[in-house]
Write a protein that binds this DNA or RNA. Structure first.
Lengths: 120, 120
DNA sequence: AGAATGCGTGAACGCCTGCTCATATATTTG
DNA sequence: CAAATATATGAGCAGGCGTTCACGCATTCT
């Protein structure tokens, strides 16, 4: 494990040096945290949250999502592209329509837990 | 899953009009979604995620958090201010130190669920 | 075939975010 | 008292985000 120089901590020091080392040993990889941040970034938009909410338990086409979110179809497409990249949604193509749905139930859990927090 | 009409098209920009109305009736208020988006925004940063991770089950002072995240103490203070505003963390003041901890366990659930998603 | 429809994407704009720097405040130390 | 320490905060700047506009592609209808 890499060493964290002592003087990087508080001069008064050892406020809780042991705790710091413990945290550093158990923490997630940098790449993982970056991807996690990107995933939360996708959820950090009222418009995309409306999309997530709209897709809870359903599948909907792009133009319906545009109507629900109140933004242009182009904007929705951009959002869906981002959400696809982070695997928050997946879609199936039927003739000229594209039907989107949530990729897995992690997303619903995140939405629900977050809503609980802001409502408390 | 709901029935998706094969013969209907988006001529009035709505394919499944009933599904759209259903979604609109059950959706969260605009203010709620905005606050939810702000909350996810706070989690949408590798540095703040490191803070959340570091505070899982512990309380730490600001300078220790600065050492753990690798950014300046000033930056950490700014982050903590934001996280305080959204009630992700709370703190107690002891002499000149400020010890921060996670506000409730919703945050840990969000962190864990998100990590599961990016790891799958 | 040509027109219309549903969707995707690049460019460009204003706005917001995350960092550092400088400084302020409160507390402890000498 | 003055100096040092731990934290908070405002200003400012580079980079990123969300939207609209314009257009392209594929499919369907006449």
């Amino acid at each position: 494990m890499e060493t964290m120089p002592e003087d990087a901590l508080c001069d008064v020091t050892l406020v809780d040096d042991e705790a710091v080392r413990e945290v550093m040993a158990a923490r997630a990889g940098a790449g993982e945290l970056e991807r996690l941040a990107e995933m939360f970034q996708v959820l950090a938009s009222p418009t995309r949250l409306r999309i997530v909410e709209a897709l809870a338990g359903r599948e909907l086409c792009v133009c319906d999502l545009a109507a629900l979110t109140g933004v242009s179809q182009s904007a929705v497409s951009h959002h869906l592209r981002m959400m696809r990249a982070l695997r928050l949604v997946r879609f199936r193509k039927e003739s000229r329509m594209a039907y989107y749905r949530l990729d897995d139930d992690h997303i619903g859990v995140l939405f629900g837990t977050g809503l609980e927090h802001v409502r408390e």
